[in-house]
Design a protein around this nucleic acid. Structure first.
Length: 201
DNA sequence: GAGGAGATCGTCT
DNA sequence: GACGATCTCCTCT
């Protein structure tokens, strides 16, 4: 029942660092989602770093716009964007106010509330990797939408935040990022090898 | 299981 | 008006 215990949120300083370091350190941490009385918890198993300046693949590379302004704000805030007409993707802002780095959550492993996640995904209440093994899938499973854009992910009193876990630090592998055409050679994708919930090996 | 096409719309040119 | 940090379904093997 460890998954039901209250969790302390990761502090703002955790995100006030290079996105590459934040992306690595987020592996094994927890995404906590409150939906009314229900609580959903999932462990992070795959992330990607977006550097902002000097990273053509980053949404913030070409400067500040209404869409990406959260990335230019203080660290530890949710940047949620809509993509391909169908899906939402969850990021967390990194680096100090004014520097627009971020980390994309690409896959998580359900810990608590699996049946609720399955329901949100329109799938049978069984523990399948297909529930959360992709950036669009995990937001759907956790009911994350544009309404969550700009929320403070370091505040455990809110309905979406990031938390520490008691687990040992997982093994980490770095690969190229998925689905991008610019700066595609950079190894800025981080995953827990052999974890069945990664989006692809 | 691999591979390809379509869905679908907000954002920026 | 084009395209995108994706997903699912369909077909073929």
């Amino acid at each position: 029942m460890r998954g039901l215990h209250p969790r302390s949120a990761l502090p703002p300083e955790f995100f006030d660092r290079d996105p590459r370091q934040v992306a690595r350190d987020l592996l094994g941490k927890l995404v906590v989602r409150r939906l009314g009385r229900k609580i959903l918890i999932a462990r992070v198993v795959e992330t990607e770093a977006y550097l902002g300046k000097n990273d053509p693949a980053a949404h913030s590379f070409s400067g500040r716009t209404p869409r990406n302004e959260v990335l230019f704000g203080p660290p530890g805030y949710a940047y949620v964007y809509f993509i391909y007409g169908n899906h939402y993707c969850l990021n967390v802002s990194c680096l100090p106010d004014g520097a627009a780095g971020g980390v994309l959550f690409r896959a998580v492993e359900p810990v608590t509330g699996i049946s609720a996640m399955a329901k949100a995904r329109g799938m049978p209440p069984l523990p399948s990797p297909r529930l959360t093994n992709g950036p669009g899938k995990l937001t759907e499973a956790l009911s994350i939408t544009r309404a969550d854009n700009g929320v403070n992910l370091t505040d455990s009193t809110l309905s979406l935040y990031l938390a520490e876990d008691d687990f040992a630090r997982p093994r980490i592998v770095a690969t190229t990022r998925v689905g991008i055409t610019k700066a595609a050679h950079l190894k800025l994708r981080y995953l827990v090898p052999d974890n069945p919930f990664v989006s692809r090996p």
